[in-house]
Amino acid sequence: MQFGFLLEQVVNGLVLGGYYLLISLGLSLIFSVGGVVNLAHGAFYALGAYLSLEITRYLGFGAAVVVSPIAVAMLGILFERYILRRFYSADPILSLLVTFGLAMVAEQAIRIIWGASPLPASIPPAFRGSVIVGEFLFSRYRVMLLAVVAAVLLGVWLLLHKTSFGRVVRAGIQRPDMVAALGIRLQPYMTAIVMLGVGMAAMGGAFFAPITIVHPAMGSEIITVAFVVVVIGGLGSFWGVVIAALLVGVVRGITIHFVPAAGEASVYVLMFVVLLVRPRGLLGERIEKFE
């Protein structure tokens, strides 16, 4: 019986990890390709949630989870073109400063536009309730969410590993100088990566709005966990981030099962241990420009 309950927590942790993944994968890609720690990543997640609420009102939930990430990805073009691009070759402290500042500006802008009070959002009727499989209880909504994450993951993996676009991006992570020597400009690829990254974050916001609280600081709440996942997974590794996100979800679930009060701390302990054993993260590659 005890084992069954534990397994339930493990499965639930995997679902939660899937949601962390939507946020962390983009953060990792932008970090790996551009060398920029995008502290404003959470702002795009929050914006995705707020836009989805607006769109849900007029076009319904289905349209909101598609249109909101696309709209935020478009905003990502401006973000990359007019802000990030100036900092790829600058001192990293400058890109930290600018993205940190942007995160604060975005949070205040959300507060001015939508107010400080949290906004209501509900799960669409079709996905309400729970399903019980054997002894396990699943929220119907989270099962759907897991399927969406799996589909997104597959799409991103195919994009990075089975297309010429992906080959350039992966080469750009390892040897940007060589890519440049071959006459390929990395900048348009970087624009696309930022669009993809912030779009995924917005998608996370849109899908999580009905089950979490939609308020101006939601972006700064998620950025810490997303950053931890990226560090645990290791830079430049697609599967590293995937494993790290799932691991973080599972470790948190198991810890809450046994020592509830240590639930949130367990994630940071995990990061500490991983960094001690593997300083580059679980599957982090040796990236010359970061060494």
Binding site: E8, Q9, N12, L16, L137, T212, E221, G253, I256
Partner: peptide, 20 residues
């Protein structure tokens, strides 16, 4: 009785414990 840190945004593990 479970003590919940003020930055918890996901209650699913606690809800499973309640179910038990």
């Amino acid at each position: 009785d479970e003590l919940i840190a003020t930055d918890v945004t996901d209650f699913s593990p606690y809800l499973l414990k309640i179910r038990q």
